[in-house]
């Protein structure tokens, strides 16, 4: 999150360790400078004004500068989850959380607020495109990237996933370096 230039109210709340309601109140009262996404009511806070707000109110800056990319791994195959956890933890640039079903994934995105979700397409309860759509419909998760990784490669299905809001697709088995690079690229974009 440290590379971002604009934050949602949810992200700002996480960084400041305040409730989202408080952030919204400060935004609406003008204490916290920002803008609304044209054509919608979504609030956006530029990094500079967030820093100003935090300094003015004596809020610790470590939430802003933790420096790690937050990755949520969603796969029902424990071995795959473990592989990713090993790779990403070993790399050092990432903070990792995991989920093994679509439901878990929903809960974890709310709690963990990942920068990117690495999502298996075929989950035991719901399909990947439902997870994609749910994330995209959430106002606070607009900046969250979704990288689908699956053993299923039906071009038509991949097309549907991209339409449902996924940012990219990588087929299993994969090249580890390639996946790590892609995660960083997507989050920085």
């Amino acid at each position: 999150m440290q590379h971002k230039s604009v934050y949602t109210t949810g992200e700002a709340a996480d960084i400041c360790k305040l409730s989202q309601q408080t952030i919204i109140r400060c935004f609406d009262s003008g204490q916290l400078q920002g803008f609304r996404v044209p054509g919608s009511k979504f609030r956006r806070i530029p990094r500079d004004s967030l820093v100003k707000f935090m300094k003015a109110n004596g809020i610790p800056m470590d939430g802003l500068d933790s420096g790690k990319i937050r990755v949520l791994i969603v796969d029902d195959d424990a071995e795959i989850v473990e592989l990713f956890t090993d790779v990403l933890t070993h790399d050092g640039r990432f903070e990792v959380a995991t989920a093994s079903s679509g439901y878990d994934a929903g809960v974890m995105t709310q709690q963990f607020r990942p920068d990117i979700v690495v999502l298996d397409y075929m989950l035991p309860d719901i399909n990947g495109n439902v997870v994609c759509r749910t994330i995209r419909q959430n106002e606070d998760l607009q900046e969250t990237k979704i990288l689908i990784i699956s053993g299923m490669v039906n071009p038509a299905e991949v097309e549907k996933l991209m339409e449902a809001g996924a940012d990219d697709f990588i087929k299993k088995p994969f090249n580890i370096e390639h996946v790590v690079e892609r995660i960083v690229e997507l989050v920085k974009a």
Binding site: D77, I80, L83, D86, M122, G151, M152, V153, K172, P173
Partner: peptide
């Protein structure tokens, strides 16, 4: 198509671990 999902998962683990 079914087999692709079932087989590609373990293959991803084998290939991933081997790369590590």
């Amino acid at each position: 198509a079914g087999a692709a999902h079932e087989i590609n998962n373990p293959l991803a683990v084998i290939s991933g671990r081997a790369q590590l």
